[in-house]
Structures are given as structure tokens and as C-alpha cells.
Amino acid sequence: MKAIIVSILLAASLTLQAQETPQQHPPVVAGIQIGTDIGGAIPFPFKHLPERYNPYPHLTLSLGGRVGVPLTATWSLGMEITYKTISLNADARVKNQKFQDGAAIQYFTGSANMQQRFTIVEFPVYAKYNLPGGNRLLAGIYNGWTLDGLFRVEPLKGFTGAKADWFDAVMDENMDEMRFDDATGSWDIGLLFGYERQIFPRLDLGIRFSCGFKDIFKSGQKYFDYSMIHMRGSVVLAYDLVRVPVKTR
């Protein structure tokens, strides 16, 4: 997942340097799109990322529709609705990972598996800047409604203590996983950036990077001493069912 983040950020910055003035006024479009998301919820600030963290994203298909309305010759407004499932497993080696459940605070040191899956309906709204040659840059916000959330941690090896760098209890290798499903929140909001290229008439290929602002857990459910925010890269294939040319003066 970290590689995807780096790739998207680099691609976006390099593309920004190549922008030129467009020649044609874009049409109003309405279409469908499919895609896949790679990523999930990660600790924020990033300093809380475990010292060893190996994500294993699961690729699942997202389905949706989109509408694009030109504002000027170079700018358009885009809106989408997308149904998607984001699934990510990870293993990590953590040190003094703080867990809090009510008054109970424990610090875990060791290795653990983490499993997360979120089924989301997402509503992105963004501005699109049209570049020559069918290239576009987009930036906006998204609002997501979580239909189903799963977040589980299974300690594998290690120990817990009532304070940092302290041993109180050894983790049994057959220990039950800790389930935080019921604590996951129902909505999210965040920023969206992307690049899109027309590969055939009516068919666009795009990559996106989205970053949530909101902890995936309900407010008041403070299990960790940091936030878990959604951070994802997406690949999207969109087909315009309807294209209505806009008259230009």
C-alpha cells in the first residue's frame, strides 16, 4: 500500500508539470465505472505505523456511476456514486501498542495479524482540469457511508503489560482475535486527487488517491492512542453512456 501511495503522489506531481492549455470545450457526460481500491485504514500520524508492517490488500471490484458537467473550457465538475468493498490484511511487529477499553489500558509488544474490510457507498465531488491529449487532473472531496465494517486484530506472539516496556502477561499463540467491528463508524469524509486519461472515445482510465479525515472508529471508542484513517489508491475504468456536446461561442 505504501508503494501505491508513493506512485500516485509521484504521478500526480509529474503530470502537473506537463499541463498545457486545452483547445476544446468538454461535453456533459454521464456514465458508469468500475474499478478497484488498494489500501485501507492506517495509523495517523504516520509515526504510529508499526516498525514492521506488511499489508496484503485484497482486490475487489467497485461499481458506480458518474456525471461530468463542464464549467469552462478547461474546468469541469464531476460527481460520482460508487459501491465498493475495501479489504486489507496485514501483519505487523509492534512495540508498546496501546489498547484502551474503558478504564483498562494494556500495551502490547509483539507480532500480530490485522484484518479490515469496509463496504462503503462513496459520493465523490471534484473539480476536473482538462489537459491536452485527453489527460485530466482532478481534486475534490468525498463522503462515504460505511454499510459494513470489520476490524480485527489477532495477536500472534508477544506480551502485554499495564505500562509501556513492561511484561505482565504472555500472549498465548491460540489467543482469540480482538474484534472491533461494532466500534467502526458509519461515515467518512476526505480528500480525493486523481489523474484520468481517455484511452478510447468514451472510455477513460483513471487513478485516484483518497485520504480520509475521520477516525474509522466511532467517536468515544478510543481503542488506540492515535487515529485510524482511510488511505487508498484506486484504479478506475469509466465508460460514458451519454455525451452531450456543449455549444461554445
Binding site: 505504501k2 504516520f46 514492521r52 506488511n54 501483519d91 505487523a92 500480530a112
Partner: peptide, 26 residues
């Protein structure tokens, strides 16, 4: 700042190479 962010992310990526089930128990 952007450069620092790239460097940080690349370092994080590099640090994620060892699977935890391969870590030594001894």
C-alpha cells in the same frame, strides 16, 4: 516538505520487507 514526505514514505516502504512470521523467536 514534499521531498521529506517522499523520503519518509520510501523509508517506510523499505522497512516493510520482513514478514513478521519470519522474525526470530529466540
Amino acid at each position: 516538505k514534499q521531498l521529506y514526505m517522499y523520503i519518509s514514505l520510501v523509508l517506510l516502504l523499505a522497512g516493510a520487507c520482513v514478514k513478521v512470521n519470519n522474525l526470530a523467536d529466540e
